[in-house]
Each structure stands twice: as C-alpha cells, then as structure tokens.
Amino acid sequence: MTTYIIRRLVMIIPVLFGVTLITFFAMRVAPGDLAQVQLGEYATEEALAVFREEHGLEDPLPIQYVRWVSDLVQLDLGESYRTNASVRGEIFDRIPVTFQLTAFALVFSLAIAFPAGVISAVRQDTFIDYLARIFAMAGLAIPLFVIASLMITLPAIWFGWTPPIRYTAFTDDPLANVTHFILPAIALGASLAGTTTRMIRSQLLEVMRQDYIRTARAKGLSERPIVAAHALRNAMIPVLTVVGLQLGVLIGGTIIIEQIFSLPGIGRLLWESVDLRDYPMIQGVVVFMCFVYVFVNLCIDIAYAWIDPRIRYS
C-alpha cells in the first residue's frame, strides 16, 4: 500500500507539470494587454513600459515560465499584479470558505442521495421511487446558477428575506456562518445529489440481483441487514468513484456559487483574477485546485481497499 501511495504521489508531479504548462500558456494566448489591464486604458506608454519591465513581461515566454515554475517548486506562488498581495497568502485566506462550502455541499448531497437512492432501489417502481428519480433528474437538469438565483430572489420577493449576503467567519459567529452556507451548499450539492442518487439506485439494483444476496435471503436474513451489510457496501465502489470525479464539478461550481452568494472563496478569487488578467493569481489558484482534486481522488482510491478488502494495491 505504501508503495502504491508513493507511486501515486509521484504521478501527481507530471500532472501538475502539465497543468502549469497549460495554464501559463493559455493565459498568454488570451486577448488583452496585461499592463494595459492593470494600469488602465489611459496609461501612458512610459508607465506601461515600466510595469512590463518590473514584472519581467518583456522576457521570452519560456524564460517567464521557467522563472515561475522554479519559484513554484519552492512554494513561492508570487505576488498578485493587481494588489501586490502574496498569492499563497490570498489562497490560504480564501480556502476555508471554499472548503466549508464544498464540504457542506458534499454532506448535503450525500445526506439526500443515500436514503433516496436506497429507498428508490428497494422500492423499485413505486411512487417513492418515481419521486426520487424525478428529484435526481431535476438536480441534474437544472443548472446550478438557476437554482442559486431562485434561492436568492424568490424569498426576497415573497417574504422580503434573503439569506445573509455578508460572509462571517465561523470563529466570529458560528450561527451566522452556518446560516450563510446552507443555501449555497444546497444549490451546489443539488447536482451531485442527483448523480449520486441515480448511481446508488442503479448499483444497488444490480447488486440486489446477485447470487450472494439471494443466498442471504435464503438463509432467512431480513431485508434491512441484507441491504445495509451486504448490498450497499458492494455497491459503494462505483459510487465513490463518481463522488471523487464530481469533486471537480463541485470545485468548478464554487466559481458560480461564490459569485451569487457573495462568498469570498477561491472560486470568486479565480473569477476576479481572470477578468483582470492577474496571471500569478490565476496560475496559483489553478495549480492549487488541481492539486486538491488529484489528492482527493488519491484518497478515494485508497478508500477502495477499506471498503472492499479484496482490493489489494501492489
């Protein structure tokens, strides 16, 4: 197992390398003069030249890339062109917000998906199954920005109430903090809940038709332990894979959700930085997000062995 983990960790390096290449050069291909964006359209040629000189923008792109990557391996993500703030510091300031939002969304989606998926499979083709499937389809079909916008505007129009639009840190006011995250988490988690519900249902239906389930029933076991102890655990591996892959969707979704609910997280930071061509910030955030995504999926791979002891990594 240790060898496997080390091997997987080493494999992260070429992935991250690829991400740095794509991010760095894709940003340079995008239209817009960085110096002009930072200094404003009426900036003089002299001021633009000074900015480019100060930030090494006149150097050939490969040199700029090597300079950035060599700083990156020393965990120096540079400074924002826009605010001069440390990129690493800015990411660490914002990560608790995005982490909390993603965690809440994950918890919400699993809290809905597990019972809905299981009941839907166990009570196949009943009213409750149809209800669960409609819910799952709705979660998948309705774009999250629509769900989020409705969550904000409808209560305001109907009841003159909106969820708090001011972010409060958990340490300052836990109740206000949690209140602020409930609706964004629901909006963000709806799609994942739909996907997971459908996945659990289909996997469970397949497992429930296996011989060992029939054997368990023949032994006289009641339905509840059959589902809980035998079927569900075996149905979990594909579900876990989907959850891991959906994490990317969740992280991407934070960009929209943080905009709509005014949450100062990583997603919003990325959005603002792209708009202003803040290269160091964009590159830093993308590499960081990529690392988190790869790392979480590694953790999920490791979790397979815990769920199914037959799986051995060698």
Binding site: T153, A156, I165
Partner: peptide
C-alpha cells in the same frame, strides 16, 4: 458605512428588497 461587493445583480436586488 458598510460597503460590500455583490457581484451578481439579482443578488444585489434581493439584498435591497430585504433591507440588507
């Protein structure tokens, strides 16, 4: 004065309606 950045226009409308 409390000045906030609310990037989304519909959120801003909701905030005004609710007195936020």
């Amino acid at each position: 004065m409390d000045f906030r950045i609310i990037p989304d226009a519909s959120t801003m409308d909701a905030a005004l309606i609710s007195g936020d």
